[in-house]
Design a protein around this nucleic acid. Sequence first.
DNA 1: GATGACATGTAATTCGTTACATGATTCC
DNA 2: GGAATCATGTAACGAATTACATGTCATC
Lengths: 187, 187
Amino acid sequence: MSVKYIVLGYLSWQPASGYDLKKIISDSETLPWSGNSNQIYRALVELHEEGLVDQTVETQEKLPARKIYTITPKGKEMLVEWSKDTPMAPQFRKPFLGQLLWADQLTPKEIDQLLDDYLNAVGEKLFMVRVQADRKPDTPDRTPREAYLWDMARRNWIASYEMELNWIREMRQELRQFDKEFAKRDA
Amino acid sequence: MSVKYIVLGYLSWQPASGYDLKKIISDSETLPWSGNSNQIYRALVELHEEGLVDQTVETQEKLPARKIYTITPKGKEMLVEWSKDTPMAPQFRKPFLGQLLWADQLTPKEIDQLLDDYLNAVGEKLFMVRVQADRKPDTPDRTPREAYLWDMARRNWIASYEMELNWIREMRQELRQFDKEFAKRDA
DNA sequence: GATGACATGTAATTCGTTACATGATTCC
DNA sequence: GGAATCATGTAACGAATTACATGTCATC
């Protein structure tokens, strides 16, 4: 459902081929799919079957033919309907938190290392999102409000990663303190 | 991989049956699985095949037999190894953000309503996590440090939802301001 | 001569969910 | 009599990923 919605959304902005959409989705750090061709081409076929998009084949001289998809009036209506869907709560997949629960067997040094690795992993993600936000590709910006909505989505991603980084830093500090006290007590 | 790790983790704390584990996992607001029997019983079979847990059947007078699983020394070693795995970055699934990107067709009122619904959905999640944190069920607390690790995991979930709430509130304010200005300009 | 972009798609596999199946007991 | 708990599991389905398949052209 959600992939189709995103695909239809992009088509509401401008006509595109499956290849175009695949690139956009797989390049995006924020859209939650890997952007594999399977899903996208299927989504386009289904949208076409439902009459939400039109398909025109554009043969090119030297390159393979492109199937360009254009949103239909019915598709536009459907997009508005989907926009009104009652929002889903976010889902956080943080395998690291599960990992932490059973990590008490590790030495302080090992846990510290673990936190450091997590910090780097999250930091890298944040960096990628920031880079993408600065490049600002593939953004409609048809109205000031639309630009604002897109910007808020970006800010949400950034805030999510920043929250995570702060959490790690705080925890690292506290754990180091913790270990010092234990060392003192054991001495 | 991850389900097996969590199951093995709980078994490192105390022996349990598939039924016990199912309850724990499906009750948890923070473990990322629905806790369906399929996954858990499969995980237990696999862990058993790999020699990471022992199985003893406990027949009961009036109730169906329970298969109690106990972690083996090999399982404990494996758990430590898994704890050392390089951490994965968190993944955020926020369909609402995708929904927002194409929501400029909606009226200010409709978007405001959408935000309000999202606020409630997130607020409810936060509430559930808080309730669970207060109940504090199923926590090992074998060492002060382990208790701390569990607490930090809880705090992470709470902070994640709180960040989301703040983001919504800020956005709602700004959008209302936005709309006022437009109303003025149009007048 | 190899790699990568262009462009479409299929197949296999993994992961996770919901629903189903069974059967006794206890609580309302 | 009906629902909930205990306790095990299977089956069907859906969502998403990786890998495979094909073929041209441009670049290094």
